[in-house]
Design a protein around this nucleic acid. Sequence first.
DNA 1: GCCAACGTTGGC
DNA 2: GCCAACGTTGGC
Length: 138
Amino acid sequence: MNYWLLKSEPDSWSWEQQVKKGKKGEAWSGVRNHLAKRNLMSMKKGDLCFFYHSNIGKEIVGIVEVTKAPYHDPTAEKNEPWVVVDVVAVKPLKTPVSLASVKAEKKLSKMSLVTSARLSVQPVTVGEWNMICKMGGV
DNA sequence: GCCAACGTTGGC
DNA sequence: GCCAACGTTGGC
C-alpha cells in the first residue's frame, strides 16, 4: 500500500467533479511529465492519494483511491508513453489542509509539495499521510 | 552533448 | 500580473 498526492487546478478538474463521478471514478489524464509518469506507473489498485487543489485554494481537500492499475492515457497519441490510473473519491477532509499549514508544520518540510512544487504526481510517506489526516480531521 | 532561449506551472 | 523553478527545444 502506497500513498500519493495528485494535483489539479480546480478550473480544469475539481474535487467536486471527482465526487460527482462516484464509484465510476475518473481517469487521471493529462500528465505530461516523466517523473510524474514514473510515479503513476508505481501506483497499484488500492493505493490512496490526496487530492490537492493548485492555484485556486492551494489546499488538500480530499482522498481518492486508485481503482485501476496504470494504462495508456487515452488523451495522448497512440505512440506516446503517457499513462493514467482511475481514481474514485473516498472522502473529503473535514478541514482542508492548506499549503501554508503544510509549510508551517516542521514534520512536513520534506514533503514533495514543499520541495518540488511543480510536480503534479508525488509520493507521500506514511508519516506525512498520517500527519495530514490528523490535521484534516480524518 | 552543451547550453541559451523559450514555454509552462504555480505560488505570491 | 509577476517571476522563480523547471522542462523542452534547437542551434552549434
